[in-house]
Structures are given as C-alpha cells and as structure tokens.
Deep mutational scan, measured.
Amino acid sequence: MPSETPQAEVGPTGCPHRSGPHSAKGSLEKGSPEDKEAKEPLWIRPDAPSRCTWQLGRPASESPHHHTAPAKSPKILPDILKKIGDTPMVRINKIGKKFGLKCELLAKCEFFNAGGSVKDRISLRMIEDAERDGTLKPGDTIIEPTSGNTGIGLALAAAVRGYRCIIVMPEKMSSEKVDVLRALGAEIVRTPTNARFDSPESHVGVAWRLKNEIPNSHILDQYRNASNPLAHYDTTADEILQQCDGKLDMLVASVGTGGTITGIARKLKEKCPGCRIIGVDPEGSILAEPEELNQTEQTTYEVEGIGYDFIPTVLDRTVVDKWFKSNDEEAFTFARMLIAQEGLLCGGSAGSTVAVAVKAAQELQEGQRCVVILPDSVRNYMTKFLSDRWMLQKGFLKEEDLTEKKPWWWHLRVQELGLSAPLTVLPTITCGHTIEILREKGFDQAPVVDEAGVILGMVTLGNMLSSLLAGKVQPSDQVGKVIYKQFKQIRLTDTLGRLSHILEMDHFALVV
C-alpha cells in the first residue's frame, strides 16, 4: 500500500459497493488471473465517493441489488447463522422517566444476534452475496479491517462455511474481542490505534497488504460494500417497522461504517417519512454534520465500534436529520445504567446512543415513540467499562463513588512517597548505550525526554532486548525507535489509591 493515498477510480455505471474482489474501477472485475494482476490496485480507499443510485421515491424494481426479506425461524435451526436477525424490541421503562421523557422509549437489542452484535447481519450478508456472485469459493481466505464486531461476525460465518479468516484490528480494541476471535479460529493482526486510516500501518493498510500477498484472499470491505446497508434496509428496518406496527417518530443510532443508519433510515424514509433520524458520533470522530460539531482538541476516545477519521463510502449522511456528539463518560455511564436499571447487557456504544436519545427525544410528546439501536453486548468489555477499576483509572468514576473498604494508605498523596527525580535518556542515544546505562543503574525503564525536557515516551529494558533479539533494531539504532509513546501519567497530588489502580493494569506510571 502506498504512503500517498491515490484516488480510487470510478467506473461508468453500476453501484460502487459490489461485493467481491475490487477492480481499479471499484466494481467486480472478471477475466484471467493475468488481467486481474495487471488491473487490481494495491488498495482502494474506504472513503471513495459513493456511486449508489438510491433515491427517495425511486421504484424498488430499479435497484441493481439482490434483495432479501426477513424469514421466520424454524423450530430447529440448521446452523447458528440462522440465529442472525429477528432481534427483540424491548421497552426501556426507567431511564426515559428518569430523564423526563414523555414518549415511549424502545430498544432494538442487536446483541441477541448469534455473534453478539449488529455486525453479524452485514457479515453474513457480505459472505452470502460474495458466494452468490462467485467471488468467494471453498478454501478462500477472508481478510477484514475491523474494530472487532464485524470480525467476530465474519469469523463466526467463516467457521460454519469453512473459510480461512484473518482479522486486522487496532490495538485499542478489547482483549475479549481478541479472545472470541481466536476461539472462532480467526487469525488476528493488531495495528497502532493512532495510525491514520490511509497510513500503511493502519488496520485498513495492513489488511490490503495481506490481501496482495495471500492468494485467493478477499477483503469484503464493510466500508464500501453495498451488502452492509442492504442488510439493514432489507431486514433490520423491516423488523423495526413490523415490531412497531409502522408507528415510530424517531430513530437514534450510533454511527461507525454508517451501514446501520443508512440502511434503516432509507427504508424508514420510504415507509415512515415523518420519522426523524438521529445520528450519534463520538467526540474525536469526524462523521457528524455540520462540520463545526467535529471541532475539538480530542483525537482519541475509548468507546469502541463507532466514529472514524474518514467518511466511509457506505455512509449516506443525507438521510440523517440531526447529529449529536457523545463523550466517553456519558457513554459508559449510560451503558452501566442500562445494565443495572433495565437488565440490558449492552456495550458502550449503546450507552452513547441512549445518552443522546434522552436529549433528542425531549421534543417528542406522549403517545409518540423513539427507537434506539443497541449494537453489541457487554461480553466484549468485561475488563473495560464493566470494571470499576478501569473506570477509575480512566477518570470516568471517582473514588467516592465506590463504597468498598480501602487499605490505610489509600488516600495518601503520591508526594508522600518522597520520590527522587528519575533517570532520563535522550532519544538520540543508541539502544546499546541505553541498555548499558539501565543495567549500570539497576533500572528496568526510563523516560525519554528531548533537550527541552519534554517527555516523549518510555523505554524499557525488556522491550529493547526483545527488539534486538527479533532483529527489529540494532544496538547502533537510536533509542527513539523503541519508545512507548502511550503511558499513564500521575500527579504528586493524586492518591496512592489512584496509582494502585493504574499499576494493576500497566507496568509503570510516570509522575509529573
């Protein structure tokens, strides 16, 4: 994948999101292997301009796509893939009243899908469409860049269908997702969380590099694949309309690839034109409109599966009536509230959605109805927002919020430890010299600072030695090549209790 991002070429006709291997024109390309080798690009942008032909009021008969309808489940399912879809609609009884809503608040519980998330729908649909058009064949390999849930859905379907599955996901995604993927037989590649989507090191860039190296491999490409919004247009939206008897006044959905909100909203605009569509985008993402909503100094966020630093091709923002931004604290607070007060075992993005819903639905009156999409299960986040310690460490809970008995030293300040200034190293000294210094002084790690004293990161003896043994660096290389740029900081005025929580999850903390 090139470091400079080429513009994806656009073909003359058809839909841009065809499933299957992508040609340089962004659509299915038939021909000899030699032709494909000559024409197939190194990668295709996940934010390529959409060429979708959908228009409100256009006859369904003019759609270029294969459409399906929700099917009634048999008493005995032939395999677990038949437990994807037909998820329950559940009334939220307490939270709406707590925040003064007059309307009825309903939750579409997508964590009841077989793999635990709304992404099971698009995973199965992308595979079925690729099999139907002859792209996927027995023994082929599926590769997908994902925040985890699409990966789980694909790995689940691949396990049943017999495909090899490789999932490329950023490091910030939970260990629970990784464990589930491994249990399903998927191979996992992790990428830096802070890598831009168009960087060769991003999950998108690495996935395309693997595709170019592995024979008979395919990126189904949830960011561009029409099967993504079509899955929701054909099934999720129809289920909502049936469950609500066609009567709903507002739908609120958090947005990642945009397939969920695009597919549902398009069908609702056709069948229930008075329904307002509300999009939820986390602070630090750029999906919301108008652009002024996205202006923030924050560039990272903890909530998973929603928000991006690019506009995915499948996201149709014209069908969203209003956007709201959400933050991590309210997302996790509301997710825990949904679990504790409503018994809905949902993930953090569901918290984002409901946090926005109780604001947006203030305009609705008694007798009206708001539906929220709860995308995934708490299963993926047992060591994250479900953990009091994690919430404390991230600053989303305060010590006084917890009532468990603490040891005698818990409320003492870090400054009472009488710490001395640490050994520091410059980023320009060599790895070999740094190892000598650390061994001589008896230290395992040291902060790396520039000549102005600005902290650049941390270097550890173990990481340097393993990097040297693996051949990633040489003793003569500058130590700046092996620094940890993500590390926890703590102030002298913070409590030892807070430091204790940090050290339970990290090997060190830097006192500043």
Rank of each mutant, 00 (worst) to 15 (best):
R190S: 07
G139S: 10
A114E: 06
S73G: 13
P74S: 12
L106Y: 11
P16F: 04
R266K: 07
G57S: 14
C272A: 13
G205R: 12
I84Q: 08
D198N: 10
A107R: 02
A71C: 04
L101Y: 04
T5V: 03
P145A: 06
S254L: 04
Q7E: 12
D221Y: 14
P229L: 01
N216S: 14
A69P: 10
S174Y: 01
L136V: 08
N194G: 05
I95N: 06
P170E: 06
P78E: 06
G116F: 13
R164L: 07
E4C: 15
R182K: 11
K177F: 00
S147W: 00
G115H: 08
E4V: 11
L105Q: 01
K83Y: 10
K271N: 14
G148A: 07
R125I: 03
G20K: 13
K108H: 02
V178D: 05
D245C: 14
K271V: 12
I264T: 11
L28T: 10
L154W: 01
E37F: 14
D245Q: 08
A183R: 02
V204C: 10
S175P: 06
K102G: 02
Y233G: 02
K172T: 03
S73E: 06
R125N: 09
V90I: 04
L105V: 15
L248G: 03
T191M: 02
A155L: 02
V10S: 15
K39Q: 11
R58V: 06
P16T: 08
P49T: 10
K172A: 02
P12D: 04
I143M: 07
G14S: 07
T191G: 01
G153R: 00
N194F: 15
Q242Y: 08
R209V: 09
E213G: 14
D249H: 07
Q222E: 05
G162F: 04
R125M: 06
A253F: 05
L77H: 04
R276T: 10
L230G: 05
T135R: 11
C272K: 05
L106W: 12
P170Q: 01
G20F: 14
C244S: 02
I95L: 06
S27L: 14
C272E: 05
G11K: 08
D179H: 08
S174H: 00
M126R: 06
L124T: 12
A60D: 06
A38C: 13
A8N: 10
V204A: 11
P170H: 01
K267D: 08
I127E: 06
A130I: 01
L136S: 05
R209I: 09
E4D: 11
P215A: 06
P229K: 01
T193V: 12
N149H: 03
G258A: 01
T260W: 01
D133G: 07
T146A: 04
P70T: 10
P49D: 09
A253N: 08
H232I: 01
L184F: 05
V206G: 08
E9R: 09
L124C: 08
K211V: 13
G20S: 07
G14C: 06
A207G: 04
P21A: 07
V206S: 07
L105F: 13
L81I: 09
E171Y: 06
L56G: 05
H67A: 08
A114G: 11
F112L: 04
C109E: 01
V168Q: 02
I76Y: 09
Y233T: 00
Q242F: 09
W43C: 12
A8K: 11
S217F: 06
L81G: 14
S123M: 02
R18W: 14
V178T: 04
A195M: 07
E104R: 05
P33F: 04
A207N: 00
C165S: 06
P88K: 04
I122W: 00
L241Q: 03
W54A: 06
N212S: 14
K102C: 09
L101I: 06
L124W: 14
D234T: 05
D198V: 03
V252Q: 09
R18I: 11
A155C: 10
I80H: 01
Q242L: 13
E34T: 10
V160Y: 08
A71N: 11
S23Y: 15
I166S: 08
